[in-house]
Design a protein around this nucleic acid. Structure first.
Lengths: 334, 334
DNA sequence: TTGTAGGCGTTATCAT
DNA sequence: ATGATAACGCCTACAA
């Protein structure tokens, strides 16, 4: 591989001049510029990004940690981040945290050890103290999917309360009075907020909140199945079911159908997240759009703006969910 | 950030000694070792991976290019790669090729510019000439999902012909005689091979191959829908449908149901790939397991073995698909 | 076992 | 506008 030195030699200029034409950050005469360019082409010169990093103290790479790589939720988030960063010629290094505290911390350290210019993370298990400390360390960190007051400038989040509200309202406006709710893990904030939204919708429609109608799920299809089973076993007269994510909705629907309910006639179902397969399940799932791609894009923009001085970018930190109406909700049957 | 020099100073040894204890590649007295370790801890020293890379000519990072980030197919592939490489403390840098020739080449160049120690790629649009040339360049490349004779040592692939065979056989053994086939794009090798397997199964069951029974799809659910529509419009008496991937199977099933076919009673369907949502669609999809996670793991192992001298790893380059029986295939109705 | 010194390929600060 | 030259933080012969 040719080095900058060889280029300077062939071009008959100093190595400093070569560096200047590469970085376009100083005046170089047209003659010299041409000589350098020719020499570069002749030698098929490619600068060493490693050497550049060492000298400039910038690696042009940002670390990304998500819970897992498969699954369209993180897929879309990564896609937003990658495409944005790629356009800006920044490399993205991925790591997974698997939703476990130890592995999340480990993953973050791994990224830090790599001299990333910034980190974008989506954590699930780590606590706020840790995040606050992390944000005060030397490497810039941006966090997707959480809101912590002390470090709010680093957070990008969805208005989950609104999402929960919209989901439940979608069945209430169809006349349903007995609606079951399968929530996410009760220790997760997004899960709590979605449930709060659910309750707000209920009270807005003058329906009393009843603990029996909410089942604590796990964000997996098994949680949906178990929740549905529980409601049926307890003979709750629900005509509508709101699930805190699409996986659980799918699990619940499968269980319901296996037990001879006609969907959506006998049971209306609403999901949350609008993952890809929501369109594939039957009936097509009415759900809440979670703009993860956009949130990923925005996280990338935050690092571009704050770390790489792309000052013209405008940042938005709270995203709004919207209702996607498909075919899994029917009006109440009389 | 503390440097190795400061550590050496505090420890009262030379910087070479510090380097030695870090890399454990030379004898250092216990006393010195302890002094160094203490100094490191006291200074909270973290080696600069950039400087290490420059000096050692190893970046410990491998580039990964896939078509897209969302979707469980690539998700699982990435997961296999990431987890394997992560255990070996190698960083993975991701890029997307979007299935377009120009963008795939661009992505590969982007990765090369980053001084990766090796590349793992899954391409769809680039031609064999390019791949051969790429394999002869200075950076080691491993290719998932293709088989090219000239560079077979670099390839990891699924036996797609066998997969196609197994898929079709799954309905033939249930007595079906009229089976439609929705293929992938005809210019893609995997698509061609799956179709070949389909034909082999047919001939093994003494069924004449008929062009009218195969619809050229696109690997998207729209292709499945269009294929099903075409078969129905032409009034082909098919009782079973084999699709070259799960997306198309899903699209076809939706269309079939919208046109009053009972599944699987009126139409048996088989997919290919066993992506996550295959379990969510109704009836649960019988399909072909595509061991992408394992293939990703193996690709990672190949770079570990060939680039990082993990000599004990055993490599396997061709993977075998298997049939996953669920509920979308029923015996022929008499 | 330990230390010295040169080199890795750039960037950036001086002079000129 | 251009050219020396010193960083950048580490590895690694080579010497001691």
């Amino acid at each position: 591989m040719a080095t900058i030195y060889q280029v300077s030699e062939l071009a008959g200029v100093s190595l400093a001049t070569v560096s200047r034409v590469m970085n376009k950050n100083a005046k170089v005469s047209e003659k010299s510029t041409k000589k350098v360019l020719d020499a570069m082409a002749a030698l098929n010169y490619r600068p060493s990004s490693i050497a550049q990093s060492l000298a400039s103290n910038r690696t042009n790479s940002v670390g990304l940690m998500v819970t897992g790589l498969s699954g369209s939720f993180f897929g879309q988030m990564m896609a937003g981040i990658e495409s944005t960063l790629r356009k800006a010629k920044k490399h993205v290094i991925i790591t997974t945290g698997h939703g476990e505290e130890a592995r999340e911390k480990e993953g973050i350290e791994f990224l830090q050890s790599r001299d990333c210019d910034a980190l974008i993370i989506h954590v699930e298990a780590v606590d706020n103290e840790y995040l606050i400390e992390l944000c005060n360390s030397d490497i810039p960190v941006y966090i997707i999917g959480c809101y912590v007051e002390e470090i709010k400038d680093h957070c990008i989040a969805l208005d989950n309360e609104l999402g929960g509200y919209l989901a439940t309202k979608a069945v209430l406006v169809q006349g349903h009075k007995n609606v079951g709710y399968i929530s996410g893990p009760s220790n997760k904030l997004d899960s709590q907020h979605r449930l709060q939204g659910h309750r707000r919708a209920l009270s807005e429609f003058n329906i009393n909140y009843n603990d029996d109608y909410v089942y604590p799920g796990n964000y997996l299809d098994t949680g949906g199945r178990d929740g549905m089973r529980s409601f049926m076993k307890n003979k709750l007269p629900i005509t509508a079911l709101v699930c805190a994510n699409d996986e659980m909705a799918s699990g619940a629907m499968t269980y319901a159908r296996e037990h001879n309910l006609m969907l959506p006639h006998d049971l209306s179902v609403v999901g949350f997240d609008n993952v890809i397969f929501a369109r594939h399940i039957h009936p097509k799932l009415t759900t809440i759009e979670n703009p993860v791609y956009e949130m990923g894009t925005m996280a990338a923009n935050m690092v571009l703006k704050n770390v790489y001085q792309h000052t013209d970018l405008v940042i938005e930190q709270e995203f709004k969910p919207t209702l996607i109406v498909r075919q899994s909700v029917a009006p109440i049957q009389n």
